[in-house]
Design a protein around this nucleic acid. Sequence first.
DNA 1: AAATTCACTTGATCCAAATCAATTATTTGG
DNA 2: CCAAATAATTGATTTGGATCAAGTGAATTT
Lengths: 194, 194
Amino acid sequence: MYDIIFKHLEEKVPLTQAEKELIKTFFKPKKIKKKQFVVVEGHVCNYLTFVSKGLLKAYNVDDKGNEHINQFSPEGWWTSDMSSFFSGGISFYSIDAMEDSEVLLITREDFDNLTLQVPVMDRYFRLLFQNSLITKERRLISSHTHTAEEKYRHITENNPDLMKRIPQNLLASYLGLSPETLSRLKKNIIFDPK
Amino acid sequence: MYDIIFKHLEEKVPLTQAEKELIKTFFKPKKIKKKQFVVVEGHVCNYLTFVSKGLLKAYNVDDKGNEHINQFSPEGWWTSDMSSFFSGGISFYSIDAMEDSEVLLITREDFDNLTLQVPVMDRYFRLLFQNSLITKERRLISSHTHTAEEKYRHITENNPDLMKRIPQNLLASYLGLSPETLSRLKKNIIFDPK
DNA sequence: AAATTCACTTGATCCAAATCAATTATTTGG
DNA sequence: CCAAATAATTGATTTGGATCAAGTGAATTT
């Protein structure tokens, strides 16, 4: 259960065996069935969540009832409503499981203790957030510059693996497109051999 | 010149006098005239830049020659092409000064030394990136859910100060709108007393 | 295995914002 | 202080993608 998280942590920072043992104590493992929620919009997001198995999605529902997916989190990724988790305010996103999943949960209090007792974790999260920030920036620019088709092409080319696990309507939501538009543009791509 | 950066650092983390003296040595102050570049797209972004005075913008130019502004950086903010700075690859953004400005520059090498010698800086940047990430996420969802008018309302309500310093066409670019659209929607808002 | 729910496709129509084009401010630099 | 460049407005037209609507297919549930 903890193998995956250590593998991911150690890709970014070195850890001693003692640190690993300590880190373990801060996390609570949990199994989540498909469709089960980790947080519901409007409630406080009490956990930062590491996905060790499965696939979660974080999304917001707008005034008109449309879902807007902020992030897919397969195994090896973190998820949470960061604003809510770190500030204690209410969550803007709901997070639920798209597949039966296994996660490691840490509370805010334990997160603070973790970074105090294992300072290198500050570096780990600095690097993690740094990379996420770069990705988010690109997605934002892409949403302004690229056509629907370009956005689709881009994501499928860069995440072929993940695409197999994500229904088309949810991918549309992630890309900021209607399901109809995504369905239609796929046809063009198939028949256009470029 | 360094007052502003320490004020900003100390809003997030405590620093000893010795640490401050050390931090100073890693940064190189520089004055930048309006329209001068800090990085040009396609070159390597060699510096992480703290703005102590003035206003910079980071933007990408697309295939059709349209500018897309990623970020405005007034005094107290950081700017750089993070991907280029941290990976050494070529920069996706150009960054230039919108006003005569003063900045503090740090190279990648010195950044690494800084975080090694003053570990609390890892925490500082963790917090900085964490907050930026939250903001970027919201902007991305907003770009999918909100109308042009809602985006404009939102930014003017939350950044009245900054709006005075930003020409309308650049604000339009930041919001992902054409200048014409922004010009037109402003009229509606003025005559609508809500 | 039938029933119900959910995902995907296809067509017709609509609309918000882009684009094209011209005119009028407003800056800025010489 | 004037000329030239840049920014903002306004109008006419186009368009990419949304929305509305209906039908088809696939997957859970019982």
